[in-house]
């Protein structure tokens, strides 16, 4: 039964790790738009793309 003294803290750490991850992701805005990203991932990047403005860094902090 000693194994349980190892398993319980492990389970707790795992649980807290995932809860922490969830809080972090939510605060980062991962779940702000639940609809579009699901569609967006279905689109393939194709060679026709010639981005005229490649120097643009995607989203910036504080742009919300």
């Amino acid at each position: 039964m000693e194994i349980i003294t190892f398993l319980i803290p492990l389970a707790l750490i795992l649980a807290l790790f995932f809860i922490g991850g969830f809080i972090w992701m939510t605060m980062k805005g991962q779940y702000d738009d639940l609809e579009t990203p699901g569609h967006r991932m279905l689109l393939d990047e194709t060679k026709t793309e010639t981005n005229l403005n490649k120097n643009f860094n995607q989203t910036q902090k504080g742009d919300l």
Partner: peptide, 21 residues
């Protein structure tokens, strides 16, 4: 969604275009 998010690739000066469906 596809065509609107492609705006930067054919319109000069557009940096990003994101659509919320």
């Amino acid at each position: 969604l596809w065509v609107i998010e492609k705006l930067p690739s054919f319109l000069p000066g557009v940096l990003s275009s994101k659509l919320n469906l």
